[in-house]
């Protein structure tokens, strides 16, 4: 935890608001933010706020999990293909594992990731859920 606190603090803006890096050269978008584009090697990248919409590219169901993730077992971890093209790994929440399929439209939500015990800090960040009725028509 001693090193987790500063790490979680450094990353919180991109985790809270789902920020990514977009290459001004080739246009590639990646999450998390990287200073150099993995596509063309350019260091001319900008930070952008992502739409938070995408679909499940692939997924797995977690039963044996690291400490502090037991609360949600079983849960789904997926690769989500965002509208902007980036492929990111994230938990799918508000869903039963059997409801998740490849191609499922999802939207970003802000949730707890983990708690470092009863007296430690709480880590928050992005997860995805199936697109809510009412949301699809408006955005």
């Amino acid at each position: 935890m001693a090193l987790q606190l500063p790490r979680d603090w450094r990353l919180q803006a991109q985790r809270y608001r789902l920020l990514g890096a977009k290459c001004r050269g080739c246009g590639r978008v990646v999450v998390p933010i990287r200073p150099v584009c993995p596509g063309c090697g350019s260091d001319d990248v900008e930070t952008i706020k992502l739409s938070g919409r995408g679909e499940v590219y692939s997924y797995t169901v977690m039963y044996k999990v690291p400490d502090s993730f037991e609360r949600s077992v079983p849960y789904v971890v997926a690769l989500v293909r965002l509208e902007e093209g980036a492929l990111i790994s994230a938990q799918i929440t508000d869903v039963e594992p059997e409801e998740v399929v490849v191609g499922l439209p999802v939207e970003v939500v802000f949730r707890q990731w983990r708690q470092y015990g009863a007296d430690g800090h709480i880590v928050y960040g992005y997860k995805f859920r199936p697109v809510m009725p009412g949301m699809a028509a408006t955005q």
Binding site: T93, W113, I122
Partner: peptide, 11 residues
């Protein structure tokens, strides 16, 4: 849900 609290709902 297990990953929700007053802050996540407020957001």
């Amino acid at each position: 849900g297990p990953d929700e609290d007053a802050v996540t709902m407020a957001v």
